[in-house]
C-alpha cells in the first residue's frame, strides 16, 4: 500500500466521524477494520483528526487487546481460553493449531494467510472447546477437527 493510498483510505474512514475525543476507540476500530492492523502513520493521523496527543492514542490502543500493531493474516484463527474451554482441554486444540500453522498465539504466518490469537471468552461455553476462524464459530472441537477446518475441507 502506498502512502497516498493509505491516506485516502483513512480519510474515507474518518468521514464517518465528527472529530470528538470520545470517538477515539470507535475510530481505531474502524481503522483496524480497514487496514487489518494499526500502522503508526494511521494512529498519528487519528491523533491529528481528534486533536489529541499521539501518546494518548498509543496509550489507549495498547490498553485494549483488540488492537494490533503488526499486519495480521487474511484468516484469523482464534481460540477461546475461557474457563469451560480450559477445563474441556482447549490447550490440546491450541497445540494442534500451532502445529498445523507453525505459529504461536499473537503471530502471523509468513505468507500472511493466518493469524493465531487466543481470546478471553467467546461466550459459547456450552459448546466448549471453541475455535473461531474468521466469523465462523466451531464448537465441541477435537484435535482431529483442526486440520480440515483450517484447510477448508471440513464437513
Amino acid at each position: 500500500m502506498t502512502e497516498t493510498e493509505l491516506k485516502e483510505r483513512l480519510t474515507e474512514v474518518l468521514t464517518h466521524y465528527t472529530g470528538q475525543k470520545n470517538e477515539l476507540i470507535p475510530v481505531l476500530q474502524a481503522a483496524q477494520e480497514q487496514f487489518g492492523y494499526l500502522p503508526a502513520e494511521v494512529m498519528q493521523e487519528i491523533a491529528r483528526f481528534l486533536r489529541i496527543s499521539e501518546s494518548t492514542v498509543y496509550g489507549v490502543s495498547t490498553f485494549y487487546a483488540q488492537f494490533k500493531f503488526q499486519p495480521t493474516g487474511k484468516k484469523k484463527v482464534r481460540l477461546c481460553r475461557g474457563t469451560a474451554c480450559h477445563v474441556r482441554g482447549v490447550s490440546r486444540i491450541l497445540d494442534e493449531v500451532e502445529k498445523q500453522l507453525g505459529i504461536k498465539p499473537g503471530e502471523t504466518t509468513s505468507d500472511l494467510e493466518y493469524s493465531l490469537e487466543t481470546i478471553a471468552c467467546f461466550g459459547s461455553c456450552a459448546l466448549a472447546p471453541v475455535m473461531v476462524v474468521g466469523n465462523n464459530v466451531y464448537g465441541r472441537m477435537t484435535p482431529k477437527k483442526v486440520a480440515p477446518i483450517l484447510d477448508g475441507t471440513e464437513q
Binding site: 481460553r81 475461557g82 474457563t83 469451560a84 474451554c85 478471553a120 471468552c121 461466550g123 461455553c125 456450552a126
Partner: peptide
Amino acid sequence: DEGDPGAFMDRS
C-alpha cells in the same frame, strides 16, 4: 461487557 470467562447469559 460480559467478560467473565465461562459466562454467556447476556449474550444469549
